[in-house]
Amino acid sequence: MLVEPSDLNDFLFRQFKAGNESAFEQLFKAHYNPVVGFCNQFLSDHDKAASLAQEAFINLWMNRSKIQSSNGVKSFLYTFAKSSCLNFIRHKKVVSKYEDRHLQDMETKINSEVLDSFDFDALEFSEMEALIFQSISELPEKCRQVFMLSRFEGKKNKEIADELEISVKSVEANITRALKTLSVKLAEYLPAVLVEIIMHYMS
């Protein structure tokens, strides 16, 4: 390899800052779907999630002079996505899938709480991300495979079961296990819930 991935990133970032459209295109292709997925998690409305994500990229481009480092790109996108989602939820534009008023309110409240607790400060975000990937790589082989197929390739549990020739139940169990491990590893970034989680696993 001629260039290290991190150098490549830096190069892309510098080109992007200078207003190079193809560099921006690379950034877009790398981050667009994850940002849509992030928004969709809170809006349960795919079209809306896609349009918020697009807005995030347009604003990233218009504000590129203010982005300081290549980590700042993701941090800008997710901060933008976070506040757009919060705005959207607070104006009660989200169409809930529940008929029960209490459940709707509960969902609004929990979603705002989760969004509020994210801190996409550039440094912290990249650390958090590194931790997620580190933790994923430390998962047992089968568990990691299942998790990657489910979360990064967006495959349905049934599809994963067929592909790996295991039962759907076993797919579910592996996803559960992966998430459990990750949420423990991430605990230091979630100080509010840290104690409770430890308590839970000690009991």
């Binding site: 997925g37 998690q41 997620i132």
Partner: peptide, 16 residues
């Protein structure tokens, strides 16, 4: 609390 931390992981690893 557990739900919130899981949801965060879920959102950060989501895609479409």
């Amino acid at each position: 609390a557990e739900f919130i931390s899981l949801k965060k992981v879920y959102a950060l690893t989501a895609t479409s």
